[in-house]
């Protein structure tokens, strides 16, 4: 067994030829790739809808090209910079806070030696993931409601003047970050936890025997093992930085107009436009815009990651 471990650590990447096995591997990928091609690539020609004045009578191909007209309603809008800023900054905040807390939570699970305690804590952390945003919105409301809200009652008990949460934008980046993190941290940490399980416990024990402190172990053994995963997940999340979680921004804020200056994001803006105009081409074009931005950001991040350590890059 020890042999194996040693081998693993000293192994260099052998660049041998695959020979026959190449076809076995291609064969293995064939069926899943078929699904990707059928269900993702065939419909992709629909992207052109975003550049057309789509009339059902003429079909997708037959409709007239209108260039960038479908993008105008958003890009030319006075609100464009505001919603772009909100979307990107809040998403960045979510990613950073999300990753840090997920790793910390995973480490805590890992350190908890008692299995029952681990199970209990994991369940507590993961439960939020099961709740839909609608339910989460009710829970947030139970805390923040101006009249009956728990937080205002507590503030009142301490003699602090109550805050009308749903009309004060300045608190919302914080509230949204907490809510979002609370909802996703458990599930994200499961991934990191699974990665930690894969770490060879002998390495860890050896370090402990050598008298390395907890922090040192975390820094030198555990974190390096998590880095590839953190890198991949972050790159993937960056790809969606221009997309906002509609449920979070619409339900949890209760679509409160007074908060729009910080809570209005691309997806809620689009939703509002669609409810008044009902023009589908708009959603296709906005989706395309979001994809392009995500694509560029991912390519950049991936390039940088590749420079640092090609193993951690996405492609």
């Amino acid at each position: 067994m020890k042999e194996v471990i040693k081998q693993r650590k000293v192994s260099t990447k052998s660049k041998g030829t695959l020979g026959n096995r190449k076809w076995q591997l291609y064969g293995m990928m064939a069926i899943p790739l078929l699904f990707v091609i059928v269900f993702s690539y065939i419909p992709m020609f629909g992207i052109i809808i975003g550049f057309k004045d789509y009339k059902y009578s003429r079909g997708i191909l037959g409709s007239e090209w209108v260039g960038l007209k479908n993008f105008e309603f958003m890009v030319k809008s006075n609100d464009f910079w505001n919603i772009t800023r909100n979307t990107i900054l809040l998403n960045l905040l979510f990613i950073v806070v999300g990753v840090i807390s997920a790793v910390v939570v995973a480490l805590i699970f890992y350190e908890l030696k008692s299995r029952i305690a681990t199970k209990v804590y994991q369940t507590i952390f993961i439960t939020p993931h099961f709740l839909s945003w609608v339910v989460v919105a009710y829970m947030v409301y139970a805390l923040l409601s101006p009249e009956y809200g728990t937080i205002n009652k507590i503030l009142g008990a301490f003699g602090i003047s109550q805050i009308n949460w749903y009309s004060e934008p300045k608190w919302w980046p914080l509230i949204l970050t907490i809510t979002n993190t609370w909802k996703i941290v458990g599930m994200d940490s499961v991934i990191y936890y699974a990665a930690l399980m894969g770490i060879d416990s002998t390495l860890y024990e050896a370090a402990e025997v050598d008298g390395a402190g907890k922090l040192k172990i975390v820094k030198n053994i555990i974190l390096p093992c998590l880095v590839p995963l953190i890198a991949i997940l972050t790159i993937l999340k960056i790809g969606n930085i221009f997309r906002a979680d509609f449920g979070l921004f619409y339900q949890v804020t209760r679509d409160s107009g007074a908060l729009y200056s910080v809570t209005d994001v691309i997806d809620t803006y689009l939703y509002r436009t669609l409810t008044v105009t009902g023009d589908m081409s708009l959603s296709t074009s906005v989706g395309f815009l979001q994809s392009i931005v995500g694509m560029v950001l991912v390519l950049i991040t991936n390039y940088i990651t590749r420079k640092i350590n090609p193993d951690n890059a996405l492609f």
Binding site: K15, G16, T17, L18, K22, L25, M29, L33, V36, S40, Y41, I42, P43, M44, F45, G46, I47, I49, G50, I60, L236, G239, N240, M280, S283, T284, G287, F288, Q290, S291, G294, M295, V298, L314, F315
Partner: peptide
């Protein structure tokens, strides 16, 4: 060692961001 590995990865990644929308 597998040829086309990066291409397939990119192919997959591309679908994460781009989609033709609901109608197609």
């Amino acid at each position: 060692e597998l040829k086309g590995r990066n291409f397939v990865s990119f192919l997959l990644f591309f679908t994460m961001l781009f989609s033709g929308g609901l109608v197609p």
